[in-house]
Design a protein around this nucleic acid. Sequence first.
DNA 1: TCAATGCAGTAACTTTTGTTACAGAACCCT
DNA 2: AGGGTTCTGTAACAAAAGTTACTGCATTGA
Lengths: 210, 210
Amino acid sequence: MIQELKNNYGNFFEDELLEEINQVGTFKEVPEGFELIKPGSYIKSMPLIISGAIKILREDLDGDELLLYFLEQGDTCAMTLSCCLGHHKSEIKAIAETDAKLIMVPVEKMEVWTTKYKSWRNFVFESYHKRLMETIETIDSIAFLKMDDRLLKYLKDKSKVNSDHIINNTHQEIAYDLHTSRVVISRLLKKLEKEGKVKLNRNTIEMINI
Amino acid sequence: MIQELKNNYGNFFEDELLEEINQVGTFKEVPEGFELIKPGSYIKSMPLIISGAIKILREDLDGDELLLYFLEQGDTCAMTLSCCLGHHKSEIKAIAETDAKLIMVPVEKMEVWTTKYKSWRNFVFESYHKRLMETIETIDSIAFLKMDDRLLKYLKDKSKVNSDHIINNTHQEIAYDLHTSRVVISRLLKKLEKEGKVKLNRNTIEMINI
DNA sequence: TCAATGCAGTAACTTTTGTTACAGAACCCT
DNA sequence: AGGGTTCTGTAACAAAAGTTACTGCATTGA
């Protein structure tokens, strides 16, 4: 594990901290679709992402969902930080977008490291900042964009985190993430296809010269 | 100033830290409507709110606005934290919602205190958490509520931060905060009035048994 | 006092988004 | 191969939100 740690977090954390993470952290490999965090649950460990991508969703009382953002290599979940440090319940849902490798760090260590390591503090602050920015970017999309542009942005983001210009999803799955209906997505995708921006096939959407 | 500090932050910060804040901080009193932060500007000090309320807005490229949340006594601006610690530009706009009293703390101290005082670290983490939660609550409103419920929620929040069941705003001003048009707000307010939830007059909206 | 301005009410219309319903194509399984 | 299932396309309609245009009332200030 130490090698993967060094590769991904080596120029961020001191050797001593890397060593500590190696001691107390547990390596975890999850398949695409794995539910890492359920809303309402308490969280006892914090994930450092080594590879793959995690999608973070908000869920309302009726079970309606909305994608907040994706986490990638080098990221951690700010919500987990909040929850751990503040001992709150999770307010979000986390699903592996792709197969992913993580290192799970137990809660207790986090506060100790915050005191002990400057690099850890900076990492935590930087994470908060990034997540706050992404959340605000999500607000921008919902508030200022129409559904067609939101969809296009979604497809681009998705294509990026998967490093693949072909997106393997049904229209229904996309509709869930954007909190709209399948018919709306089909309609808008068809429009994008007519504009030459995507090519549609069953279960796949091919991005053209994005 | 030390007295106001103790009253508002006394059971949060140690005496030593309160003393330091007293040394380096500057007291600031601003009138309603005062623009504290412009989007795109660099920020050199961080506000601790003593009294009054501040509204935090997102502004897009076309100058369209959207209210993110209100800050009150005991709060600080997470965006400022981010900006100061990460040396980024401001991504938001801050306007005094009411007359307000603040203590401005210079950026340089923040990082030092983060190392030196546990209570400061906790304050900063707690602020991030609260702001992230409020931002997500805003997403809930925009994504899951229709405009009539968003409006009602807005009026309730506004009534709360102003400690007044009478809201002194024009329909146009409300429309800006919710990023919609004046006509839409007038229409929905009229509906709320017919439902007996508000009473309308020129420049004022009276909340009824909220 | 009266003209100018700002604010609110409302009608008529458009656009966008959401809903319901159904049909045909692709896929899966035995 | 054939029956069931899932996915997509599309039409027709409904609801929500945005736009334009005009009205009259309140307030301001010359």
